[in-house]
Design a binder for these strands. Structure first.
Lengths: 339, 339
DNA sequence: TACTTTTGCTTAAACGTTTAAGCAAATATA
DNA sequence: TATATTTGCTTAAACGTTTAAGCAAAAGTA
């Protein structure tokens, strides 16, 4: 039943007794082709159910109109929403996207980069895995002259476009919010210092504490991998302190949820005894009891801007890639856990 | 700094003074090329940092080694986990995947199909949007002779491979579990009847109720779009009944969470007053209070099997596509909400 | 020694487009 | 009317592979 042979530009040319070149030009509305011919070509194309062969045109034109996207995981609301917006913008500009997940693994990330390069993508938009320290694979992308845009998890050293929120200021917002609520001993469960965004959150926390003349103690600042499980562990650690904190700012909603579970289990009242603030505004923050105060990262804005930045890069392919940061202000969403 | 020109097979051929054809064959370990030449080719390839041009080989061979994946959304744990496993299996077989999201929209799904066909994918693995009734776009895939594999949300009428769980039996498991816990009036908030999987869950619910000689009442069976918000609305409806149910089985964890919120807000004790069972085993079911009993759909198994089914189809390209269902047994995860 | 077979390559065409170059006819300009 | 410009196409090459067909030299066989 299925017409084994695809119809090509040549088939259309034969029907109309013109050259394949004329057909190609007609399809692209070339000004040197008469309207009459254009109409005829489009009519026959429809009749024969013609679908252009993307591979052939990509090969000839030297561009695939594909953009590779690398994210740590798609199952967080932040990343899936970022990707959704990217798709929106890029599809409109005639690009399609290939999504790959690194699962926070450096090794997988390298494989993904190779895969994308092999697939001849026209650009790569990525958010780095937590594990990643060695930047050589990202340098490889740059050395091939393929535009690279980073978002959320970036690295200054790569000297490429970056879109993200102001992590340093976000920490200030959180600390000052907690102070306004009367907190005096604010702890921070942060991410790994070597990850830029988490380092910024930590610096913001420390500076905000000092600026407001609160005690800064090493025991109140804990490094974590920010998974739910580690949030539980680190919360238990904090509760062991002789002088307990009255508020905890946690650099991820998942870890914050873990911490909240421990507090609930130990019948410590939130927010009465201890106030809690997370980061990321994941949907579950408004679903659990009590609801968790968090920072919204404007995921759709980030996706949109990253995509637009890529399109700009493509347009001005001549200009050298440089460190070009787009930093958005985040928004504090106050919920029950800090009221 | 960046070597503008990519190295091609021709460059390698020039260095070694052999033909491009010989280089190509050497790279593919053709038996008619001497080991000496093969080694030389591979050495020079490495030296010149050769990366094969995927577009060219895809064009020539008539296959892209790309598989398109269509999911309603990537941000549920189920779909992201399914996709992760697919990637695992397909990458090993030399395929890469392009992920697209339909956002449960029929229109977006059609666009995605066009996009994937345009990108010349070698196959499509899809889970249908809730909205989708018109199957013509899926027929289009079939008519082009491109393998189509459906998972989770499928349609018998398409007569293609399908991988999913046994929804009918799952409903039986749930109803019988609730009966064992002493429930006598079990309500069901189900999905739309026209969606096959939800219809099966509804049929399973009805049959299990009747089989166990419980009263089946129309008022206890409610159709819903299964979002969190609608879960709240439908729960409120159920609570208005003069004769309240003592257990509620909800065909999605999200809607179950909405229902739980209402019960918590109205101080109705779960599981003491009303028992609750969800569907999907989303991570948050074990995070909320009380934790929610749910059905695990073996997402990684489904991803793996769907990918393998595709590979089988490719291998036996000759055979006509037929309705070929792989049905897995789901697993009931009992948590606090039904204890 | 004379043949067949195997080995190790080369040649050339093909995949389906796009595009630079060119050319004849139609139209505009002087 | 003669010349310049524009219009509407065609020709042919190119993008980087793969592969069928072929051929000479080497190795095997009788």
């Amino acid at each position: 039943m299925s017409n084994k042979k695809r119809t090509t530009i040549k088939d259309i040319a034969n029907v109309l007794n013109i050259s394949p070149a004329a057909v190609s030009k007609a399809m692209h509305n070339d000004s040197r082709i008469s309207t009459k011919t254009k109409e005829a070509v489009k009519r026959v194309a429809k009749e024969l159910n013609y679908q252009p062969n993307h591979l052939a045109s990509a090969l000839r034109k030297g561009k695939s109109n594909l953009v590779g996207v690398i994210v740590p995981r798609t199952n967080s609301n932040f990343f899936s929403s970022v990707v959704e917006q990217m798709e929106e913008v890029l599809n409109k500009a005639g690009y399609n996207i290939i999504i790959t997940q690194s699962n926070e693994s450096f090794e997988k990330e390298c494989k993904n980069i190779d895969t994308l390069l092999f697939t001849q993508v026209d650009g790569i938009i990525a958010s780095m895995a937590n594990e990643t320290v060695d930047l050589s694979y990202y340098e490889k992308i740059k050395s091939k002259g393929i535009p690279l845009i980073l978002f959320d998890r970036g690295e200054n050293d790569l000297n490429v476009d970056y879109v993200g929120i102001n992590d340093y200021d976000s920490s200030h917002m959180i600390v000052e919010h907690l102070i306004a609520k009367g907190c005096k001993r604010i702890a921070h469960i942060g991410g790994y210092r070597r990850t830029r965004i988490f380092n910024n959150r930590i610096r913001g926390y420390i500076d905000a504490i000092k600026k407001n003349n609160l005690p800064f103690e090493d025991s109140l600042l804990i490094e974590s991998d920010l998974t739910l499980e580690d949030g539980r562990r680190k919360m238990i650690e904090l509760l062991k302190l002789k002088d307990r904190p009255d508020a905890i700012y946690i650099a991820s909603d998942y870890a914050a949820l873990g911490a909240l579970q421990i507090l609930n289990e130990q019948k410590i009242k939130v927010p009465e005894d201890i106030k809690l603030v997370g980061f990321g505004n994941e949907p579950f923050t408004s679903l659990v009891t009590p609801t968790i105060t968090s920072i919204d990262q404007h995921s759709s804005q980030i996706g949109k801007l990253a995509a637009q930045t890529f399109l700009e890069r493509i347009k001005n392919a001549s200009t050298e890639q440089t460190l070009n940061k787009i930093i958005l202000d985040a928004e504090l969403i106050v919920r029950d856990s800090s009221k």
